[in-house]
Design a protein around this nucleic acid. Structure first.
Lengths: 329, 329
DNA sequence: TTGTAGGCGTTATCAT
DNA sequence: ATGATAACGCCTACAA
């Protein structure tokens, strides 16, 4: 492979000049530049970033850690990240953990070894404390999934408020007994949304029925399980289900449908995330939308600030919205 | 940031010894090793890969280029890739083009500049010829979306055969007028599948009705459009629809449903890809499954061979399968 | 078993 | 406007 030295020899100039042609073309005479460009062409030369990276101590690459790539929600987040990244000439690498602690450690290692300039975390296989320790030495940012530790930088929505709003929406539509299909205590977002759920009910003077709260998880299958349990355990169906993800909502609807319960005729359903499928499903699903694109864009923006060493980058809470469709009567 | 030199000084040894502790620990005396490890600990040292990469002329990273991350199909492909990659200590970077030529050029640039050791392409924003030129100099592999050029290495299914099998399945279920919802001529897989469609009909002695072939694309919206046109243009609905993606199938079903046409009562539908949603949908969708995980795993395996310079790595055609569900009567 | 020293390809600082 | 040269951090002959 041709190196800068080969090009220099071929063009009859020094390596410094070749470097200048590449990086500060205006600083070199037209005629010389042409010679160099010709040599580059003839040798099919592309600069080796490994050398450049070492010299500059930067890679112009950032890492986005996702739990899984198959989560529709994140595709739009990533789009936002990439958009902002492109503006500053960063390449975005997406890596997935699938809940695997170990692989996350591998990605953290990439940060420590300077394989990337910064990292956006959307999943918490490591605890806040570990993230904090890391973020003291490297540019790290949390997005989408809220964090408790105030020393971490976070970009996302106010989950408690979102939960509250969704329940209030159902209350406004005359629903009083509202089941909760959540993700359990290991996702902080679920904890916050449930807090909002309780608050809204309480303010409406409706006692919380603990037996209507299901924490099977946020997947399609979790929705199936929760709905199955709901039908088994409750003699009378509630008026509505508030699911913490669209997938869960769909799982629930599928299972209800299998037992002859029709949405929204017999029961109403609200999902979360406004993923593409919520619009496609029959019936289409009323859901709490998060500003995914903006979340990604903002996260990348803050990360860039961190990389550039801008003083105290602070949290950004973005607003959510209820998208009204056909699954609530 | 501490460097290997700092560690060496602190431990009272040479940098060579520190390097050995990191890379060939057995080659250094127990006591010395302990001293070095202590120093590493005290200084919170992590080796800088930028230096290592330059020296070794490798990054242990590979690039997977996807059109978009939001395609469910690829999540399992990526899982296969990652699995095989982990075995050989490669980090997998996922980058998306969203059909943007320019961003693909950027990723190609990463290959040329040694930012990654190899690349798996699943989308063809650049032509076969360009890929071939690239693959002469760098490890490049095509997966999932077939390529015409025999000089390229490809991992995937036999799309023509898959199209043929799907149509034959419908014929076996008594369907004779079968509409085609495909991706048009710009995706080679669509061309091949359509070829299979024609072949199966021809062999059954059924003339191909060109007016039943729609090429609106492979998205949900494309399915909506195609179904809309179908209902408008045909006085009598066909017996079945063969859609080249599950999303398209769902779009079609949604649109049909809006007009009171029920699947599978009034018309049967076959999808493609066996993505998660095909199981979730009501009714669940009969679809042509591709071995996504194996495709990814195999692709990475071949790429590793290419990186290691193994002589002639050759195409791998994997087998598809029809998953029977509720959308065909 | 350990140390010395050269070089990977690039950029940047001085000179000229 | 251009050239010589010293880093950047690491690995690895080769020597000791």
């Amino acid at each position: 492979m041709a190196t800068i030295k080969d090009v220099a020899e071929r063009a009859g100039v020094s390596v410094a000049t070749v470097s200048r042609v590449l990086n500060t073309p205006d600083a070199v005479k037209e005629r010389t530049r042409q010679q160099v460009l010709n040599a580059i062409d003839e040798l099919q030369y592309s600069p080796n970033f490994l050398g450049r990276n070492l010299r500059m101590m930067e890679t112009k690459r950032i890492l986005v850690v996702l739990n899984t790539i198959s989560n529709q929600f994140f595709s739009r987040v990533v789009r936002g990240i990439e958009e902002r990244a492109r503006e500053e000439n960063y390449a975005v690498m997406i890596c997935t953990t699938r809940g695997n602690q170990e692989s996350l450690q591998g990605y953290v290692h990439m940060l420590k070894t300077r394989a990337v300039d910064g990292m956006i975390l959307t999943t918490h296989e490591i605890c806040d404390e570990a993230i904090f320790t890391l973020s003291k030495r490297f540019p790290v940012l949390c997005a989408c999934e809220p964090v408790q530790d105030p020393r971490l930088t976070y970009v996302g929505i106010d989950d408690e408020k979102a939960g509250e709003d969704a329940v209030r929406f159902l209350l406004d539509h005359g629903k009083r007994r509202i089941a909760l299909f959540g993700g359990g205590t290991y996702t902080y977002s679920s904890i916050l949304r449930e807090r909002g759920y309780r608050k809204a009910l309480q303010e409406a003077g409706i006692p919380v029925e603990e037996s209507l709260i299901f924490s099977e998880g946020l997947t399609f299958k979790a929705g199936v399980r929760a709905a199955s349990r709901l039908m088994k355990e409750q003699t009378k169906l509630p008026d509505a289900i508030f699911a913490f993800s669209d997938s869960t909502a769909i799982g629930a609807m599928k299972e209800l449908n299998n037992h002859g319960v029709e949405v929204p005729r017999d029961i109403s359903v609200v999902g979360f995330d406004n993923t593409a499928v919520s619009e496609m499903f029959i019936p289409s699903i009323t859901t709490v939308a998060q500003p995914q694109y903006t979340m990604g864009f903002t996260a990348m923006d803050l990360l860039i600030q961190k990389i550039n060493g801008t003083a105290d980058v602070s949290n950004q809470i973005l607003s959510h919205e209820i998208i009204i469709r056909d699954s609530v009567k």
